[in-house]
Computed example of a mutant assay.
Amino acid sequence: MVSVAIFDYGAGNIFSLKNSLEKVGATVDVITTFDNQNTYSGLLLPGVGNFDPAMNSVRNYSKVEFRDYVGSMPVLGICLGMEMFFEKSEEGKEKGLDVIDGEVIVLPPSMKVPHMGWNDLEIKKPGKILEGVKDGSWAYFVHSYRVKPKSNDVITAESDYGIKVPAVVEYENFFGTQFHPEKSSIVGKIMLENFLKECKK
């Protein structure tokens, strides 16, 4: 069994993510600070909440810096969690985690916001958490913002809703999905299993 932690921003129910991870063989703790010694093999930043309160919960209630706590441990950011990887977001004024160069911008007014529902993935290049996921697979999205990396090299999959939206990013030990794997049926299950494989290395 691999032991992982979900960071709880205090913004919503993360039971479905915890349940999905346990179903694919993980032992899961829910944590609210980074004060304690890191004994986990992986960390998940869930997709529930708003940018500024989530960033404040990471910074204001922990004595240990996020990057120091994480080190080389695999981190999976889901929706908001992925957006937090970047330098800043139009959703708020707080500085992001700044592990990937770029920003988070609101979806254009031409789209129905929030974008909610199933959409297909266009795989741009191989990725560790995309292993076994076929091009054109469907995933479940709920979001009003999208990431805009400075380099497209970090984007491993996109989705198209009139504009191309980065759907999966990978950079060093950081993995992000704009969609919710825990709500994405078999495709999501494969990606969570792939993440756990990285945690076991």
Rank of each mutant, 00 (worst) to 15 (best):
N173I: 14
E94V: 09
V165G: 09
G176L: 08
K197R: 14
F15W: 14
I163G: 09
L121S: 03
L130G: 03
S185I: 10
K63V: 09
K150Q: 13
P74F: 05
L45E: 00
N50P: 01
I186T: 11
Y171S: 15
A26R: 05
D135H: 14
E131G: 08
H180V: 10
F195L: 10
N50T: 05
E22T: 14
S151H: 05
K124P: 04
N56G: 11
G162T: 12
L196G: 04
V58T: 07
E90H: 12
Y61Q: 10
P74V: 07
H115F: 12
G117Y: 02
P108T: 08
V142P: 11
A54K: 03
K164T: 14
G162Q: 09
K183C: 14
K164Q: 15
V142M: 15
T177Y: 10
R59G: 04
M55E: 02
K197T: 13
G42P: 05
F7E: 02
L43A: 04
V104Q: 01
G25E: 08
M55V: 14
G25T: 12
G49D: 01
G71I: 12
S57R: 11
V2T: 13
G176R: 02
P46E: 05
G127T: 06
A167E: 03
K148Y: 11
T177H: 10
L17D: 07
N50W: 05
V154N: 00
N173E: 12
I105Q: 03
I100A: 01
E87R: 06
E193Y: 04
Y171E: 14
A54F: 04
S41Y: 04
G12F: 10
V99G: 07
F141I: 07
M84K: 00
K125F: 02
K164G: 12
S16N: 15
Y145G: 00
P108C: 08
N173H: 14
K88D: 03
Q37R: 08
D120R: 08
K125R: 15
I155D: 02
N119S: 13
G132C: 12
G117F: 04
S57Q: 11
V48H: 00
V30H: 06
N173L: 14
I105W: 03
G49W: 00
R59V: 06
N13A: 13
E131W: 03
A26D: 06
K124H: 07
E170T: 13
M1T: 13
V165R: 10
F7R: 03
V106A: 11
F175Q: 04
